Amino acid sequence: MNGDDIRVIMYDDRISIHSPGGLPSVITKENMRTQHYSRNPYIARTLVDIGWVKEFGEGVNRIFEEMQEFYLDDPEYIVTNTSTDLVLKNNIVMRTVRRDKALQNKLGKVWDNLTFVEQMAIVQVYEHGEVRTKSLAESNDKISVQMARRALKNLTDKKILKRIATAPTAPNQYYVLAEDK
């Protein structure tokens, strides 16, 4: 393993992270979400201190949670005595299907009665926490600013979205999902 490097390889449908060396003796594929071991505690402490991670031992759970949040398959660990590989798959088709299914479950029959632009607005809010008129219009070349404004107003009138603004014509206004959605 001496001289071997950590390698990050990006493919169209996945990212593979290759790390020389097997798992530490106390860690297995089965317990890695509940057990914690830092190979380099100095690096781990520095990452916490600069705010890149919240706490020691959050990494594996965070990977699983964020993959689920984006409707992706669970991470895949391939462990041998000489290396540990982490494969993060990205299937855009299945991710879109799972996201749309989750939105349909959340909104019920309302989803099917929304226009394409209204659905795009809700997708942006769902994925990014908010949507702005400009970002909605820029998300698809078939959506004009006027169409985006109309869709956001309709969704607000239907109480699906809530408008956040300091004034009626505030330039930094944005929309979030209404609390009951």
Rank of each mutant, 00 (worst) to 15 (best):
D5Y: 02
D5K: 12
I6A: 04
V8Y: 04
Y11A: 02
D12L: 13
D13N: 14
R14P: 07
H18M: 02
H18I: 02
P20D: 05
P24V: 07
S25F: 11
S25D: 15
V26M: 05
M32S: 04
T34F: 10
H36Y: 14
Y37P: 01
R39Y: 05
P41L: 01
P41N: 08
Y42E: 12
I43H: 12
A44E: 14
A44D: 15
A44G: 01
R45G: 02
T46F: 10
L47E: 13
V48K: 15
V48C: 15
D49F: 11
G51R: 12
V53G: 02
K54A: 11
K54W: 11
E55A: 08
F56S: 11
V60Q: 06
V60A: 10
I63L: 14
E65I: 07
E65N: 12
E66H: 06
M67K: 05
Q68H: 11
D73N: 10
P75D: 05
Y77L: 15
Y77I: 03
T80Q: 01
D85V: 02
V97K: 13
V97F: 12
D100E: 15
N105C: 01
N105H: 08
N105K: 11
L107Q: 05
G108M: 08
G108L: 09
W111Y: 13
D112E: 13
N113R: 15
V117M: 07
V117G: 01
V117P: 05
V117A: 10
V117S: 03
M120R: 14
M120A: 15
I122Q: 00
I122M: 14
Q124T: 02
E130F: 11
V131F: 01
V131C: 14
R132L: 04
K134G: 01
E138R: 08
S139C: 09
S139N: 08
N140S: 09
I143P: 03
S144D: 10
V145I: 14
Q146A: 13
M147Y: 05
A148W: 00
A148M: 03
L155D: 08
T156Q: 09
D157T: 08
I160Q: 00
A165N: 04
T166E: 15
P168G: 09
T169S: 11
A170F: 09
A170I: 06
P171D: 06
P171W: 04
Q173H: 08
Q173T: 12
Y175E: 06
Y175L: 04
Y175H: 11
Y175S: 02
L177H: 03
E179M: 09
